[in-house]
Design a binder for these strands. Structure first.
Lengths: 261, 261
DNA sequence: CGGTGTGAAGTCCTTCACAGCT
DNA sequence: AGCTGTGAAGGACTTCACACCG
């Protein structure tokens, strides 16, 4: 699964100065960069599978759909892990990114709302490769509470206060109808969850220390509709990823149909 | 689903100068603004249901999770539809936004990949309110081709070239595994689709005139993980929506549990 | 007065272009 | 000779603050 840039969070401030493992002082990493780091990480995984040992910024950028200057600037925010004249070591850059993104010790994810969409999310094993295990499921529908999805029992929403802390949940996903979302959100926050991915079409009100990212399908489609209507006229200018040649090759395919779902 | 800003499209150029219905010259609307217009539209719908006739920028902004200056600036891009000293007429602003977003005449949407996630998307009637009807479904799995979802028969992917133009499809959604996504994308583009919402975890290569927005769950979760890890330390600063008071009230609820899914 | 619409200032992000390491 | 890392320039979006209108 792939999501776009939609976080409605305003930009975080980082008053104190974190350091990386080698003790080098690091400036706060821009929000926009963090999102792309996750993309680079995924691409590196593909390259590693393909047996690549090193990549140049040009190659990596091309596959990731950005230009090389941006990629190098992004990576410069996390330190100097490239080799001049050569490129980046795939494996070590991968580890570095995992570390920076906090993936070195895994996060427990709770999903609330196991209806239509939620059910699909729960079954989405691995979330497109190395991923986040959903470790707790909640709903209020008596027909759903008690069933197992992917080996996990759906609990009642009222159990959030006890179950979430017990399971060490740090990230919550809300896939309930809009009317229920704020209430659920409040309960997750009360249970100590500080990061929430919201699929319900509502703006959630949360305390400062909680981060919300939202995924709103209707909004995505409406933005596309705007462009279809010609008002954003993409045709005239530079929409689309500015990526040439290499990418299609490295992606490991070139046009033949492949089994779906 | 919500993105953030997340479309990876570079910014479109708009060389010619569009006008609105009243003939007033309009500058190109910023991408970031378009995304929020869709949110405002949704909120206006809620307000209209609640019986509101007018809203101030302050109120509307609060419910939409932005500050009022931004909201006014956003609306100024589409013209002057407010009344000084009063606010905005809910109904007419609603219509104006629908017109600008190109929702006045509806778009046909095709969905490719009716597996786990795709199935859920197909059943997501109305997409959280006024929405986009999915009018064509495709897959390659023989077990899926031929079944009906929400009254729509799943066709084989090889029928895209004939079915999409026939149904007047303008927007495509890709919910296939990553390996299949580029191939499907190519076929949609060949069939005349110029706007694509991609759920597969791959960067799609498309010609300039095609717009791609992506929704990548793994990336969203990884960004959240980054903040959990404290590296983006939200706690210290200004994450979260800067919305107070009014919002929770206008949202029509205040904390009690509501049925889910 | 109250609240919109908007120039101007400010912030964040992107792109350029090149110095410097290997 | 090649490719990274980065200051500096450039754009895009946001916030401020106030003139202006109803």
């Amino acid at each position: 699964m792939t999501l776009p840039p939609q976080a409605d969070s305003s930009t975080a401030e980082t008053p104190d100065t974190p350091e990386n493992s080698s003790g080098r002082a690091l400036k706060a990493i821009p929000e926009a960069t963090v999102t792309r780091l996750a993309v680079y990480l995924r691409v590196l995984g593909q390259l590693a599978e393909g047996g690549a040992e090193t990549v140049s910024s040009e190659e990596l950028a091309s596959v990731a759909g950005v230009n090389s200057a941006k990629l190098r600037k992004d990576l410069s925010h996390i330190g100097s892990y490239g080799i001049r004249g050569v490129g980046y070591d795939v494996a070590s850059l991968q580890h570095e990114l995992e570390r920076v993104l906090g993936l070195d010790h895994p996060q427990a994810v709770a999903l609330v709302g196991v209806g239509n969409l939620g059910h699909a999310l729960a079954g989405y094993g691995g979330f497109g490769g190395r991923g986040f295990p959903v470790t707790a499921l909640f709903d209020v529908d008596p027909d759903l509470v008690g069933i197992k999805i992917n080996g996990i029992v759906v609990k009642h929403v009222r159990d959030i206060p006890t179950e979430c802390p017990a399971a060490g949940v740090t990230i919550g996903m809300i896939a309930t109808p809009a009317q229920a979302a704020q209430s659920v959100c409040d309960q997750l926050v009360a249970a100590g969850v500080r990061s929430i991915l919201n699929f319900a079409p509502t703006v959630l009100q949360v305390p400062e220390e909680v981060e919300v990212r939202k995924v709103d399908l209707a909004v995505e489609l409406q933005v596309l509709a705007f462009h279809v209507a010609g008002r954003g006229n993409a045709a005239a200018g530079g929409i689309s990823t500015d990526v040439p040649a290499v990418a299609r090759v490295v992606n490991g395919r070139n046009g033949s149909a492949v089994p779906l779902s």
